[in-house]
């Protein structure tokens, strides 16, 4: 038994075949290489995102040279604070110690950025100072060693 194929069907099929082939060819050139390897994204983008250079070296890098500070810090309440919290990003200094871009902040405002009294801070979280009452006119580091705050200077 022979099936009757309407004359428009082969023509339509041809048109579809051409369209699909064209689509696949275009797609081949438009979709980036690693797209779809892990999901609906370019897998190479993971590498791109891991590329940027770091600015903060991490305190283990600091302690490789500054062992003395590590020992000092360990004895007092600032032991949990990493070096770069106060001294700023230090990767350049780690790569070459000639680069002296390490911050050595001093002044009541800097210490106050953490220690200023504010109702939002839990009393257990931090010692809070009213900068308008606590030894006005004196710099914090005249009495306190930032690495060992309770080792009072005379």
């Amino acid at each position: 038994m022979k099936f009757y194929v309407p004359p428009q069907i082969p023509r339509l099929a041809l048109a579809f075949a051409i369209f699909i082939t064209l689509f696949l060819v275009l797609r081949h050139f438009l979709v980036p290489d690693t797209f779809g390897k892990y999901g609906h994204y370019r897998a190479a983008s993971l590498i791109d995102n891991a590329q940027p250079e770091i600015h903060y070296a991490g305190q283990q890098a600091c302690f490789k040279c500054h062992q003395d500070i590590e020992d000092k810090k360990a004895q007092d309440v600032h032991s949990e604070i990493h070096c770069e919290t106060c001294h700023g990003p230090g990767e350049k200094h780690v790569v070459s110690s000639k680069v002296e871009d390490i911050l050595k902040p001093s002044g009541r405002e800097f210490c106050g950025s953490c220690h200023i009294i504010n109702a939002g801070k839990q009393k257990s979280a931090i010692n809070q100072i009213d900068l308008n009452k606590h030894n006005v006119g004196k710099n914090c580091i005249e009495c306190h060693n930032p690495h060992q705050p309770w080792e009072m200077k005379k």
Binding site: I54, H55, Y56, E84, T85, G88, P89, S113, C114, N118, G120, K121, A125, I126
Partner: peptide
């Protein structure tokens, strides 16, 4: 959290 802003600062630097 004590609201010191170190995280926001470090994030911008990094």
């Amino acid at each position: 959290c004590i609201g010191c802003g170190n995280c926001a600062k470090a994030c911008k630097n990094e």
